[in-house]
Design a binder for these strands. Structure first.
Length: 779
RNA sequence: GCGUCCGUGGCGGAAUUGGCAUACGCGUAUGGUUUAGAGCCAUAUCCUGUAAGGGUUGCAGGUUCAAAUCCUGCCGGACGCACCA
């Protein structure tokens, strides 16, 4: 009998599958389309790590299972190749991002092929290729036409490490999501997408989505809907009024001062009136130079300065109250100004104490009444900000806009797309507020598409997250070079049937993709608002308690495991590690257990072949175990099926192990059971299952095109059931009863049981029978 | 501070959702096969006790015939948001 040689059989089947294009689906003719999507990787120089394999294996098992359930499963793969990460790495290496990316992608592709997943390589996407980013630019233009892309001067987050501005979502606790540098504020003219216009819809639709609850909660929090009131405070001796936003108009009588953010629009006009002008100007200047972290750190003491000579009037009681400037009030939320009610707000109290401001504990009043009396206006605010998409970097799609001296802002005509990213040697960030492309004259200088006059190109590129906000629309339509996505194909394949990815994208990619989809739907490109009807977050595979990353030096490559054990063992081992949706700490201690298991399957199946050839009578044990085994078979099908549906791969594998243990223990070589075993195993260990399906069972077609085994619920029903008997909460005996025995019958059997009687003293007070489980006796 | 989740053997983790806690696997021990090792096979493996028994799911209570599971309060850990008015 031949030894199980995983490397040999895996190579053999991968070659054959590739040759036969086994995983391609006819996208036009497919009857039961199932779009099985995973978040595409960024092709890092370190190559694929075990965390990627963990993630993709889980998705692939789902896809293979759905395929056996009769669906036409489309499982594409691609590369999120543009972006600061690739560019930074090229800078470090002294190479060029384009060369670096090409090299990394081909390495990644080879590694991915070793996984034995059913990726459809004919539909590969690479976001850094002109044939892709042409359509990213097209998307920008559509958003521009729809009034959803605008250019504005605003205080924006700037990362000095990455030398670019960042979107709100890419600032984590005041630090850059990429490099961890403290983010500072700059006043710059930048391109934004009006995602806030969709705040209400992004929030409302969440209820309808079948998504991991944690991700929905994160999105709800990020959108941060808050219902309140806008009130106006008059300024004494001046025409101007200050608008504030509050969720507590009922505390208006207790408002003893106003606080404006340093960037508040009215501040300059107050300066003529202010007696301590120098101090105020100094304060405003200082807060400008603070990093986001310094401004928002809760541990820091609040700072502020009074606008001496400016007095506001509380509309509730007409009392004169002072006006302060403090940077704990944010300019980009609400109206950038608040009424301070120290008696009812901790932060205001802290501030009032420090600066010895009066505190009034005026009682609360009726909300509705006070709002109508002082003329307040109901207002909904969101934490969500518009999506800043300009990046002062090189490795991204140029924003397709031209500035004409005569015509102003002119979008690049669609026929002129793509605006090619020029290959330049000096691609390094400039550190000014301009992209390195600004120094490339042949690129920057152009003519106006409208008037033909002299014009300048926009030299910023767009955010990487724009590339990934629509890649799932491109996958099925990669063969079309005259449109981003084909109408018919899109109608057939979208929305995505199942999307699996990391929680870290809860408010980044997943929010952006939803926004882009909604915007395109509004433009009439298709008729669905939500791109991913079902989303599941997988767990994160970490190493020594930390996320795998090159900087920490804890990246584990799958290659040595593929070489030593083969892909099937690696796949199953990763899935057996723990619940897929939890992830865990990587260690390879138990991998031998999976190797042993697959070897046992191998031996079992080949012995079956030998026994069949000899035409020998099946082992005499078989007869006596047939009944029990048939039951176990149906139970195993049920368990594995249900566990796969719930992405609980670890317990599905445990179920398969128990099944194999039983088959081995009783040396049962029966083709019916082996066929079922191999089918249940096929999504997990696709190569081994295929090899044995052909070589041991003699089939000539692929096991991966076989229908998934079904179980008969009738066959699982037991005729006899074991029940535990408890006396006063302690297990004192075990009885076997007919499955359909009545409660009284069970009760009688339990009370007659010898072991149980030892613990009984006279008549029991109470007997509770839980059918099929337990008899509980209270004395 | 707010939100979400978690705490079970030496280790990764199971537990039909309130019904025999520790499935499955790792590791370990003993035995078998073997010149030897590797491998494979068998048996054992929560604690305590010779045994009958008793105890055990981070800690302390509570509800219940019955709690890893529900409730309350602590302790510890992970993640997300965070001066959002």
């Amino acid at each position: 009998m031949t030894e199980y040689n995983p490397l040999k059989i895996e190579q053999k089947w991968r070659d054959r599958w590739e040759k036969e294009k086994a995983w391609n689906v006819d996208l036009k003719k497919a009857k039961k389309p199932y779009y099985n999507l995973m978040m595409f990787p960024y092709p890092s120089a370190e190559g694929l790590h075990v965390g990627n394999v963990f993630t993709f294996t889980g998705v692939d098992i789902h896809g293979r299972y759905m395929r056996m359930r009769g669906y036409d499963v489309f499982e594409p793969m691609g590369f999120d190749a543009f972006g600061i990460h690739s560019e930074n790495f090229a800078i470090k290496q002294g190479t060029h991002p384009q060369k670096e990316t090409e090299k990394n992608i081909s390495h990644f592709r080879e590694q991915l092929k070793n996984m034995g997943a059913m990726f459809n390589w004919d539909h590969e996407v690479d976001t850094s290729k002109p044939e892709y980013y042409k359509w990213t630019q097209w998307l920008f233009l559509q958003l521009y036409k729809a009034g959803l892309a605008y250019r504005a001067k605003a205080p924006v987050d700037w990362c000095e490490g990455c030398k670019t501005v960042l979107a709100d979502e890419q600032v984590i606790s005041g630090k850059c999501e990429r490099c961890g540098t403290d983010v500072i504020q700059k006043e710059l003219e930048q391109w934004f997408f009006r995602i806030t216009k969709y705040a209400e819809r992004l929030l409302g639709n969440l209820d309808k989505l079948d998504w991991s609850e944690a991700v929905k909660v994160a999105q709800r929090n990020w959108i941060g809907r808050s219902v309140g009131t806008e009130l106006e405070f008059r300024i004494k001796n001046l025409e101007s009024r200050i608008k504030i936003f509050t969720t507590r108009p009922d505390t208006l009588f207790g408002a003893t001062y106003l606080v404006l953010s340093p960037e508040h629009e009215h501040v300059p006009s107050f300066m003529f009136q202010v007696s301590n002008r120098k101090v105020v100007e100094k304060y405003i200047g200082a807060s400008k130079n603070k990093t986001e972290l310094e401004r928002t750190d809760l541990a820091k003491e609040k700072t502020g300065v009074e606008l001496k000579g400016v007095t506001a009037i509380n509309p509730a009681n007409n009392e004169e109250i002072p006006v302060w400037i403090a940077d704990y009030v944010l300019s980009n939320y609400g109206t950038g100004a608040i009424m301070a009610v120290p008696a009812y707000d901790e932060r205001d109290m802290e501030f009032a104490k420090k600066f010895k401001l009066p505190v009034s504990d005026a009682p609360l009043v009726d909300k509705e009444e006070i709002v109508s009396r002082v003329g307040g206006e109901k207002k909904v605010n969101y934490h969500l900000r518009d999506w800043l998409i300009s990046r002062q970097r090189y490795w991204g799609p140029p924003i397709p806009i031209i500035y004409c001296n005569a015509c102003g802002v002119v979008p690049v005509p669609e026929k002129d797309l793509p605006v090619l990213l020029p290959y330049v040697e000096n691609f390094r960030p400039t550190g000014t507020d301009k992209s390195p492309l600004a120094n490339v004259e042949e690129f920057a200088k152009t003519t106006c598409p409208k008037c033909g006059g002299e014009a300048q190109r926009e030299t910023d590129v767009s955010d990487t997250f724009l590339d990934s906000s629509w890649y799932f629309l491109r996958y099925p339509s990669t063969e079309f070079d005259d449109k981003p996505f084909d109408e018919k194909i899109t109608k057939k394949w979208l929305p995505v049937s199942m999307y699996i990815g990391g929680k870290e994208h809860s408010v980044l990619h997943l929010m952006y993709a939803r926004f882009v989809t909604m915007a395109l739907e509004d433009m009439g490109y298709f008729d669905f608002q939500e791109p991913f009807l079902k989303f599941r977050a997988h767990g994160l595979l970490i190493k020594d308690g930390a996320k795998m990353s090159k900087s920490k030096g804890n990246v584990v490559s799958p290659d040595e495991y593929f070489d030593a054990y083969g892909a099937d063992v690696m796949r199953m081992f990763l899935m057996f590690l723990g619940p897929y949706e939890f992830g865990g700490d990587w260690r390879d201690e138990g991998i031998a257990g999976i190797a042993r298991f697959l070897k046992r399957v191998w031996t079992l199946s080949l012995k079956l072949k030998i026994e069949n050839e000899k035409r020998k009578a099946i082992d005499k044990n078989l007869k006596s175990h047939t009944n029990g085994l048939e039951k176990l078979t149906h139970k195993t099908i049920k368990k594995v099926t249900e566990d796969i549906e719930k992405l609980q791969y670890n317990t599905a594998i445990a179920g398969l192990m128990e099944y194999v243990n039983t088959l081995t223990r009783y040396t049962i070589y029966d083709i019916r059971y082996t066929e079922i075993l191999l089918k249940l195993l096929a999504p997990f260990a696709p190569h081994l299952a295929e090899e044995l399906w052909h070589e041991a069972l003699g089939h000539t077609t692929s096991i991966h095109s076989e229908p998934w085994p079904t179980y008969d619920p009738e066959k699982i029903i037991e005729e006899k059931v074991q029940m535990v008997v408890q006396v006063n909460g302690k297990v004192r005996g075990e009885i076997e009863v007919d499955a359909d025995a009545s409660e009284d019958m069970v009760k009688n059997i339990a009370l007659k049981d010898e072991k149980v009687r030892k613990w009984l003293d006279g008549e029991p007070k109470k007997v509770i029978v839980v059918p099929w489980r337990v008899v509980s006796i209270v004395t």
